[in-house]
């Protein structure tokens, strides 16, 4: 079949979705540029899953805050993917000061180190600006980490809240999406229904770091006031409306 120009109808339909519609084809197969484009998207997603977190770069991005380090029981990526239980248990972490804190931030590689590398430090800094008077633990960089690893880290730091900033499972269109899980009174054994989640933080039409921070800070205040997180805490606040609110000290 001769190469036909992209027909007008598909251009109009494509405005309504980024689904791979109207691809055309050669025989029953899609055209080669589509095949290679798909392979590239898959390659980027897989690289995001398997790339190790660049810890020194993340430390630099977190300055002037000095980071602590934690590692899960999963020794490598292959084990991490097969054994989510090991990714939830702490192998070790740097010693922290005594005395507890209002909130601890854990920056965890999760399923996309790329996401943490790009978006976690901006979210952390934006949160700290909005938390005057809060006792904030040094940020913890956690590797081969699942969300629930934050429970043990938070408990060790004596934190009233733990916010885990973690790389989400990469999709073909967005390999670097960050998620945040907030847990009140973290300790091992917390259930997923006891957490609040903010997802889809990325630059390709997702939630921007400043807005994610505004929403997270709002949730943190609500969580301390109502002494809970999870399904009991509705998180229907509009982040854009929250962005303009003045920073406030923590509820007692």
């Amino acid at each position: 079949m001769a190469e036909a120009p992209v027909p007008e109808p598909w251009a109009r339909l494509r405005a309504a979705t980024r689904a791979r519609i109207g691809l055309g084809g050669v025989g029953d197969a899609p055209p080669l540029p589509e095949v290679l484009g798909f392979q590239m998207a898959h390659a980027l997603a897989r690289d995001a899953v398997h790339a190790p977190l660049d810890v020194p770069a993340l430390e630099a991005a977190l300055r002037p805050h000095a980071a602590l380090h934690a590692a899960s029981m999963a020794p490598d990526r292959g084990t991490y993917l097969r054994r989510p239980d090991l990714g939830r248990r702490l192998r070790g972490m740097d010693a922290a000061g005594e005395g507890g804190c209002d909130v601890a931030f854990v920056l965890a590689d999760g399923l996309s180190a790329t996401a943490v590398q790009r978006h976690a430090a901006p979210v952390f800094h934006a949160c700290v600006e909005r938390l005057p008077g809060w006792r904030i633990a040094p940020p913890v960089i956690a590797t081969q980490a699942r969300v629930a690893l934050g429970d043990e880290i938070g408990a060790r730091l004596g934190a009233r809240l733990v916010a885990v900033l973690i790389g989400e499972r990469p999709g073909l269109s967005v390999p670097d999406s960050l998620g945040i899980y907030l847990t009140f009174e973290p300790r091992p054994g917390r259930r997923d229904s006891e957490r609040n989640c903010i997802s889809n933080i990325h630059a390709a039409g997702g939630l921007r770091p400043e807005l994610a921070a505004a929403k997270l800070v709002w949730l943190m205040r609500e969580a301390l006031t109502r002494k809970l997180t999870g399904t009991g805490l509705k998180d229907d606040a509009d982040p854009a409306a929250l962005a303009g609110r003045p920073p406030l000290p923590p509820p007692s």
Partner: peptide, 25 residues
Amino acid sequence: CVPGADDIMLNYQSLSFHDVLALRS
């Protein structure tokens, strides 16, 4: 099957419409 094997909502890959055309052929 989904367009181009890419489910843009569930973020996973299924079969494409093309795949089924090929199977039928």
